[in-house]
């Protein structure tokens, strides 16, 4: 039986440059979505990159984003108890309060500086377990299945967290002024 060729450091570095280096902005964004602060995200992103480099010989080359997200997630939950609790959060913690406002009316969804500010705060206020799902699906364009694999959670949990996170964001946006992007 033929022996597979050994992966040399040069090969490893070449694959790292080709597959992982282009994903630096993705890694920075995802690390932020999993962290409580920019400083924490900085540490998490760099730790993740180092681990990814060391593990290049075990990476099959498919779905670099999902692979990086999974390393980041494991790094974050192993870091300390606080992250573990937040990243393994039960779905119930993000249930929005019902303040009676109509967040279902597209008239209530605003576009512009005000909305962006409300959305930024809304995203910041989400627990990381929910924020990272929104980040992976709505910003990075991963499918539910890819997000589930990246975060090592069932697809149903991805759907549930996404739905609850969006509900909370809609709740936050209710009552803001609308510029009717939905009709443009």
């Amino acid at each position: 039986m033929a022996t597979p060729p050994e992966t040399t450091t040069t090969d490893q570095t070449k694959r790292f440059e080709e597959l992982i280096v282009p994903e630096m902005p993705f890694l920075a964004r995802v690390a932020r979505s999993m962290s409580h602060s920019a400083a924490e995200a900085d540490d998490l992103a760099q730790d993740t990159l180092l681990k990814a480099y060391r593990a290049m010989d075990r990476f099959d080359g498919r779905h670099p984003k999902a692979w990086l997200a999974r390393i980041a997630r494991n790094t974050a939950i192993n870091r300390d108890q606080r992250n573990r609790e937040f990243l393994l959060a039960e779905d119930g913690i993000v249930e929005p309060d019902d303040d009676g406002s109509d967040a279902n009316d597209p008239e209530e969804i605003v576009v512009g500086a005000d909305v962006d500010e409300v959305l930024r705060h809304g995203l910041e206020a989400l627990p990381p377990a929910f924020r990272v799902v929104v980040q992976l699906v709505d910003v990075e364009g991963l499918s539910y299945q890819e997000a589930a694999e990246a975060l090592d959670i069932p697809v149903g949990t991805v759907m549930s967290r996404l739905h609850r996170a969006r509900r909370r964001l809609r709740q936050a946006l209710a009552g803001t002024h609308l510029d009717r992007e939905v009709q443009s």
Binding site: M24, D42, I109, D138, V139, L173
Partner: peptide
């Protein structure tokens, strides 16, 4: 759809 566009708009820039 509008919410997704808004989220992508505010969360697409890396620190």
């Amino acid at each position: 759809h509008a919410l997704k566009r808004g989220i992508a708009r505010v969360a697409q820039d890396a620190d």
